[in-house]
Amino acid sequence: MLNLRLETFGMKILAAFRLCLLCLFIGYLGIGCKQSSKEKVFTHSSSLRIVATTGIVGDAVKNIVLNKAEVNVLMGPGVDPHLYKASQKDLELLSKADVIFYNGLHLEGKMAEVLEKLKKQKKIVAIAEAIPVNKLIKVGENENLYDPHVWMDVSLWKYAVIECARVLQSIDTSNAAFYKQNLDNYLQALDSLDAYIETEIAKIPSIPRVLITAHDAFSYFSRRYHIEVKSLQGISTVAEFGLRDITNLVDFIVARKIKAVFMESFIPERSIRAVIEGCKAKNHEVKLGGVLFTDALGAEGTPEGTYIGMLKANVKTITDGLR
């Protein structure tokens, strides 16, 4: 009797199981159908399809090809390599691309390894790796690891832009002259940007000319434009600073009478707030100078949405804060 009841119970469970399987498959079919109609929207254009990883790399490419090619950026506005998660859409872009540009120097982490392997099938270029090695800043002691934030130094970024143009000219020979022209124009703009940053930063009095941030992404900037950089911690996002780092920085700010500290958009504000409060308790008012752009561009359509605009915005924030 009991056995029988158990059996019917088991049957019911089995039926329930079948039912939910059915529901799921119907659901999946529904999603699938919807998708197949969407698939047709994808149009094929004859122009070059270019994919760039970060917004900054994408901006360099866009300035060379202008409207002659389709440029897709994987890490859009506000997306830095740490936040980035590859999606189905990105996979489609990557597999359909004719040429892929990325920064290199381990900025893209694991993705760079995949791109490295894909080089056998596609034209894939790490543009920052075109910069002469002796101009790069080493990290760590005895191995070939370099700080990837090269775009902070305009004169270095020019190498990357030139590399980018060189590759494009070799692939798309029909538009080579056009690309050459754009490159020259853009290099001129970069030169004047370089000079602009230099003169602007030089205007800050030299004693408090210190850029204080939470994360150390400004070593190239510091070297090129002669501004001291102090930060709570290095490049690594897993590393954490300790109590001593905070108190040391507070003492430093108080001693040098620095007027403002800055933060990067991808770091929680609180870390630099602790420094400000520490200074306040020691009777030195230091203000939050503003947010600096590091790995990601600002929103599209705004001045900060381009490389030049982003650096200019950084310079304005820094000079406004420190002057």
Binding site: P81, H82, K85, A86, S87, Q88, D90, L91, L94, S95, H106, G109, K110, M111, V114, K117, L118, V139, G140, L145, D147, D216, Q233, G234, I235, S236, T237, V238, A239, E240, F241, G242
Partner: peptide, 29 residues
């Protein structure tokens, strides 16, 4: 974290960027 903070501050060395793969890259790799 302590080891990174002391010895490898300037290197991006978390699991996400050196070890963990991504399903989307499978057809490319």
């Amino acid at each position: 974290v302590i080891l990174i903070s002391i010895f490898a501050q300037d290197i991006d060395l978390d699991q996400d960027c050196v070890i963990y793969g991504e399903l989307a890259y499978i057809p490319l790799d």
